[in-house]
Each structure stands twice: as C-alpha cells, then as structure tokens.
Design a protein around this nucleic acid. Structure first.
Lengths: 195, 195
DNA sequence: TTCGTCATGTAATGGGTTACATGATTAC
DNA sequence: GTAATCATGTAACCCATTACATGACGAA
C-alpha cells in the first residue's frame, strides 16, 4: 500500500505522456532517458505500474502477441493531471538532485512558466547550499585535514558550475518570452551551446 | 536487525577513528564533514550507533554531566579493523557517488596504496559511465528533444570534469611515492591547487 | 538445443527519512 | 519564563534494490 515511487512514478508518467508503452519497453527507455544518474530495475518498475494503475493514473490493455501477453499502459486524463502536479512540486528532500534531473528531462511537456519556476527553485536551493558550505568553511578554520578540505573545495566548485549552467538556461528560457504552450512546435531552440 | 547503515556506518567509524564522541556531537560533525551531499538525521544515527555497539565495533561509556546523561562512543580494535575493510570495499551500488565521497573524506586514515586503489576504481567506474552514455547517444540519434539532450550533454561534461579531477589526485598521490603509513605526519601536501 | 533477450512479476532486504516523544541546560 | 539548543531515542514510512521465479520467442 501507500505511495510506490515518487521519482520513478514521475519518470513513468513522463514517458507515457508521449505515447503508450508496455512495461519492458518502458524500462529500457527509462534507463535511456535517466541513463547516467540511475538504473531503474524491473523489480521496482512493475510494482510502480501496478500502483499507478490502481490509482487510475494509467490504463492497462492486454496485447496478445502470439502466445506472449504484454500489457500496454497509457496515461489517463487523471494521470496527465497528476503528472503536471508532480512536475510543479519541489523535490521531496533526500532525492533532491535526481528529482530535478527527471523534471528537466520532461521539460518539453510543460509550460514555460513552470519550467522557469523549477529552474529558479533549483538555483535558489543550490545557492543556499553554497552559503551554508561557505559559512561552515569559515567556522571550522583548519579543523579539517587536506583531503576533507579538498573534497569540500571540489564540491563547492561543482555547485558553482551548476549554478552558472542554470543561469544560462534561465536566460535562454527568458529569451523566448512567450508561449505557455506545452510541447509548443519548434519552441525550444536557444539552448546554451557546447562551445 | 541486519545491517543498519553502510555509508552512515562508515562515516561514524571514520569520525570515531580520530576521537571518541557522543551521539549528538557525532551528528553535528557528520553534517559538517559530509555537508553538502547529505544531511544525516538523528533518527538514523542513533539506531546505527546501537547496532555498531551490538556488533562490538564501538564501545559505550556513560558520561554523567550534571543530571544529563550522555553516551560517549569509542572505536574498538574490531571497529578499526572493520573501518579498514569498509574503506577497501567498492561502493555497494545505488549510493555509488556518496560512498566515494565518504571514503575520500577519511583518506588521511588509510594507507596510500588503498587510496590509490579507491581513486583508480572510481575513475574506472566513471569512464565506464562515459562510454555507456556516449554509446547510447550514438544509438539514439535525435530521438530526444532538446531538453533531454541538453541534460545528457551536461551530465557528460560533469563526469568528464570529475575524471580530470581524479587524474590530478592520482598524479599527486603518485608524486609522493612512499609510505603506506596511515595518518603519516605531514604526509599530504601535493594536493592539486585551485589555480 | 541452447543461449540471449523479451516479458512479467514476487519476496526479502537495504538504507535511509520524517514525525513524534521526552527531558535537561543554556541564553536572553 | 520562554525559547533555542543539547541529548537520546522509537515508530512509521519511503523509495528503491537484488535475488528469485516463470515462461515465451528468436537465432546460432
């Protein structure tokens, strides 16, 4: 009982938002989209699908291919609504970073103002982290050995880099100061380049 | 029952390796050392301490300060041995990145050859991740929208950056081609700079 | 015919979290 | 005297994992 999967749930709804899929194919795509960060196992995927189905967010349909039976899942109207709700919510603490990554991966399904809110929320969270980390650094003053200090320095640098990345994304998003249309045709173009 | 905490366990043993501490102080230092990555809650810390005590890795001693009773924990010989075992082990999959961070934070407690093995193991893992990610990128060819693609590009870049960081650390570690002594006096110096 | 991959699931375990309960001590 | 912080713990829950079980299908 209770809520099976929050981050996994979001990812599943996000993929089904595009097209209906059966479990196995869903699993493969999940590992493609989320790729580097996280490997989703079928041991968590199938219970998650069963749960989403119980809650009425997805519908099942039996495809009999020869003697093999596979179940194709599709997003319901309720499910689409729930997807938007989950996308608008902040990270549920604990899996903070991964939650943002999943949200970002499905940015093309939501409106621009929600995208901006997520990006700015993320930036605020990272800046808070930076403040705390720098405050802690001043408070300790050489109580840490060289390795611990280097770890913190590297962490700080990585976070600063991510904030700059977010700044570019936010700027780029503001550049196209228009549509709240989800999946707007050709809407995304001014992505920060790799140069 | 069973194994309460693997990453938390390692962090606790690592801190107690330096000096005995009571639970509350341990918690605060944990949040200092691990800081940015993870906030340890007392709801997991105290059960972890009880478990380590049961297994004989740490010893308890009651300090009666006024009417307040606090329990100071100290590393036993078995505990020190267990700490070295945990430090030598690879990340237990799932919490891959965090495990490395904790290991790194306690590098000064272990010998140089173990440090090098950990750093090289981490680099190998990241390089595998890069290979898979790049292979997946070639396999898909524009099946991803701009946001998903940008997420992958950014992930790749971050990982590449981390590999370069590891290379510097490994090089620096090889520079001082000597002691297997844990806590060697003044042993760490050639840390890569921030320039 | 055997091996890889497709396809769906269950059971047990892991490694944490938040919320709650309790009470002493210190600072204002 | 009241609020923050010190100090220790329990209970309930969360979100996933690995290992296991089962079986059809295609290709070598």
């Amino acid at each position: 009982m209770s809520r099976r999967g929050a981050i996994l749930e979001l990812a599943v709804l996000g993929l089904l938002h595009e097209q209906p899929l059966h479990g196995y194919e869903l699993g493969k795509r999940l590992n493609g989209v989320l790729g580097a960060f996280r490997v989703v196992s079928y041991g968590s995927l199938y219970p998650c699908l069963a749960n989403l189905s119980t809650k009425g967010f997805i519908s099942q349909e039996r495809d009999d291919v020869g003697r093999k039976t596979r179940i194709t899942y599709a997003l319901t109207t309720d499910g689409a609504q729930h997807f938007l709700t989950l996308m608008s919510q902040a990270a549920p603490s604990g899996s903070a970073d991964e939650h943002f990554d999943v949200q970002f991966a499905f940015f093309s399904r939501i409106s621009q103002d929600v995208r901006l809110r997520i990006l700015e929320g993320r930036r605020t969270k990272l800046e808070q982290r930076l403040d705390e980390s720098r405050a802690a650094a001043r408070a300790r003053r050489a109580r840490f050995d060289a390795y611990t200090a280097e770890l913190h320095r590297h962490g700080l640098e990585s976070t600063e880099r991510e904030v700059r990345w977010l700044n570019e994304l936010i700027h780029s998003e503001r550049g196209q100061h228009s549509g709240s249309h989800p999946s707007s045709p050709d809407g995304i173009s001014a992505m920060p380049g790799n140069s």
